[in-house]
Write a protein that binds this DNA or RNA. Structure first.
Lengths: 338, 338
DNA sequence: TGGCAGTATCGAACCGGTTCGAAAAAGGAG
DNA sequence: CTCCTTTTTCGAACCGGTTCGATACTGCCA
């Protein structure tokens, strides 16, 4: 079941079999057919490790996870799914790297041991040592997210600043004056997560522009935290009439908190934010939100990475996406205290 | 940066370096230290492909996806996350295989090209050619799910029949007489998905035992389908007062449909089913449900696979899980038409 | 001081492919 | 029929590790 066996049965040399398969040198028609017949008969497939060793390419890309710990959100699932699918179209496999507790170890595994040809990094931080490290090494990688200094890098990003600004303007246009911001968990904000920081920046800036009274909160990635967070919001400022969130996993909890406080959405309270479309449609009333185009981002990241792998000298490229807000049913005009 | 370079700099032979690293033969203390110093200095890591070629083990396990198409549910995310984490603890990497459109191709890639030492299969069908195929090949694999003939196989399963029965009994105990079943999408049922079939069996059986009037539905994996499905349920039998679902992605839509029909949960209508705990807590009121222990299942699947890899002769093992129903807030006593 | 056990290290073969240079075979022109 | 070009195939080296058999070195006892 190795190439030598195929060669023996076809009565040719190993190199001829190799060339017949790769097409890198011409092989006469009848020997090719003879070889093909033997291959089909035995169901032969070349050994991936041997091939990787010989030509230095593993045909595998690494998908590097955050040091976020044990919690995965729905958005990440969409990334993973679309990356795997897009990679398969280019004949690449996808190796998942947890980079959980000690990210260095699995990072070393992926790069140091040459398990992958390139990497896609998820959950980027503004100052991200992984990105810097890879850039210093010249290792082909694409970030899903954008560091504080994205110039000269390869990445696919979402313009969280602009999206959150749009959310704030949307609420302000509806007459809301007291608005809260529900961010990702505090640990992630402190760790410098891009979405948390840029989203917060956009919120602060737009709120200042519109002269809104605002409060910002961090919130755990689960429904219970969302509910608790909403209670805190109404406790701190009962006159709050709207919120913007980046935290899709807390969304259900936020809604529950509103329901239990007797605030009807969207009559008494407007909710909006930046979340995956699937989640926006799950809650009732459906969330007016900037839908994170996770699938497109994953696909584009793979496109960029493959381009980079195919053309080692290519100059850096990136995509900054800013999808429009999908108007659904969770926001409405403010009244009463406005 | 290869073993020869290390050997040269340390003034020893390549085999000595290899033995110093693997410990498979004794190496004197000072040469070991000399070698280690060089390795640390250069940051050397042995090439994974070369190692895999030499000793026939890739230290990688494959995670095989369903032919389900482009839709991933939250449960799958939890499986993936826990599998990756558990595998990392055993020093295994995880290779994702879509097996999307033509599952054969990526299957061949994984096994035929020897990219992985073993595989974990997700989304099992009652008659699953992948399982049969692997069993015939004697290839080390563990299924997350259980075929119609699970004897002699390695798997981690969820007792959907028992769980759905428990849900039905729960509703019947509360006095509900007309109950609906919301299954996975029709395509999956027709394809023979285990959860869809066994869940349906349990529902039918328990409903018959309790003499309930029932209807069963298939429902797409998204909120819009859930809403449509609920409308159909109430249209077909307006006196329905409860439902059992396996479809977590439709859950939000089911709730919305109930709200729009003016049925209050749990006062007018009880909802229960088998879904991941995270989803059960997202909806309001929180779902009384059998929580799918996705994390535990993923972890156990890895444990079994590693055991199988370490002891090639070991006799088949499995785990059939049947977590209890978590009483939350979505079910209550029936009244009115009862 | 020779013989011997035991330890430390080395060289070579091997895993299964790819690739290069050269040899062999085929075809065409003189 | 020879010579030369072109096409087709072959053998050997290489990728970077692992592993086996054998050699070199050490210390100990007779």
């Amino acid at each position: 079941m190795n190439i030598g066996e195929i060669a023996r049965r076809a009565g040719v040399s190993r190199s001829t079999v190799s060339y017949a398969l790769s097409g890198k040198r011409p092989v006469s028609d009848d020997t090719r057919q003879k070889i093909q017949r033997v291959i089909d008969e035995l169901g032969y497939r070349p050994n991936a490790s041997a091939r990787a060793l010989a030509n230095g390419r593993t045909s595998t890309i690494g998908l590097v996870f955050p040091p976020a710990g044990n919690h995965y959100t729905g958005m990440q699932l969409d990334f993973i799914g679309s990356v795997v699918e897009a990679a398969a179209a280019y004949d690449y496999d996808v190796l998942l790297s947890p980079s959980g507790v000690d990210s260095d170890r699995s990072f070393q595994r992926l790069l140091g041991e040459r398990r992958v040809d390139g990497a896609i990094l998820m959950e980027i931080r503004l100052e991200d040592d992984r990105v810097d490290h890879l850039a210093a090494l010249g290792f082909p990688s694409v970030a899903i997210g954008r560091t504080a200094h994205p110039e000269g890098g390869w990445w696919v990003g979402l313009d969280h600043t602009a999206l959150v600004e749009a959310c704030v303007h949307h609420l302000a246009d509806l007459g809301h004056r007291r608005v809260a911001f529900v961010n990702r968990p505090e640990g992630l904000l402190r760790a410098g997560y891009e979405s948390a920081h840029r989203g917060l920046d956009g919120f602060t800036k737009a709120a200042a522009e519109r002269g809104l009274a605002v409060r910002t909160y961090c919130c755990g990635d689960d429904a219970a935290s969302g509910q608790a967070c909403l209670e805190r919001i109404l406790h701190d400022e009962p006159a709050t009439t709207g919120l913007v969130t980046l935290n899709e996993a807390a969304l259900g909890g936020l809604y529950r908190g509103l329901a239990e406080a007797g605030r009807h959405v969207p009559r008494d309270f407007s909710v909006t934010g930046v979340v995956a479309g699937r989640w926006a449609e799950t809650v009732t009333p459906q969330l007016t939100a900037a839908d994170v185009p996770a699938e497109e981002m994953g696909r584009r990241a793979v496109d960029l990475l493959v381009e980079r792998l195919d053309h080692p000298g290519a100059s850096p490229r990136h995509h900054l996406l800013a999808p429009p807000i999908s108007l659904r049913a969770s926001t409405g005009p403010a009244h009463g205290t406005s």
